[in-house]
């Protein structure tokens, strides 16, 4: 497994573990007044900090497990896999963002809009990572 495939697994797992519980809690809050304000902002900041620390430590451990592989610049296959995965993830991101904007038209409020935009970005990133892993394991 290449360094970049390991990083894709790490990012996929990190995003799922960090934002899965976040969106679960946000969904449980529903239209609670806390959805806007310190409670949800604090939760979001906590998730971002945990994700950043986890990804940093994870990336360092992955790099230390094979320093030579980590130091090597990406080759043409890495770039092709990243390009294809990103282009499909972009095609997921745009409609997901339009759905998020739709929540504004429906009058669901700013908090729902913000979280819907965040969800669109997270979903697109999950798709990108999953497609990169697929590209490394099965080819295109």
């Amino acid at each position: 497994m290449t360094f970049r495939e390991k990083i894709a697994w790490l990012t996929l797992g990190g995003l799922a573990l960090a934002f899965g519980p976040y969106f679960f809690m946000i969904a449980r809050l529903g239209n609670h007044p806390w959805l806007i304000g310190p409670a949800s902002a604090g939760l979001f900041i906590a998730v971002v900090i945990i994700l950043t620390i986890g990804m940093t430590i994870g990336s360092i451990l992955v790099a230390l497990s094979n320093v030579r592989d980590a130091e090597r610049p990406s080759d043409e296959r890495d770039r092709e896999i990243a390009r294809r995965a990103s282009s499909i993830a972009y095609a997921v991101l745009i409609p997901a963002l339009f759905v998020a904007l739709g929540t504004l038209i429906l009058g669901l409020g700013q908090a729902v809009l913000v979280n819907a935009v965040l969800a669109a970005i997270v979903i697109a990133e999950l798709v990108r990572c999953a497609l990169e892993i697929r590209g490394y394991r099965r080819g295109w």
């Binding site: 080759d75 043409e76 296959r77 099965r138």
Partner: peptide
């Protein structure tokens, strides 16, 4: 990378 050569040999890339 070695993995890219392996992928080429296997017809995956």
């Amino acid at each position: 990378t070695r993995q890219t050569i392996a992928a080429i040999e296997q017809g995956k890339y």
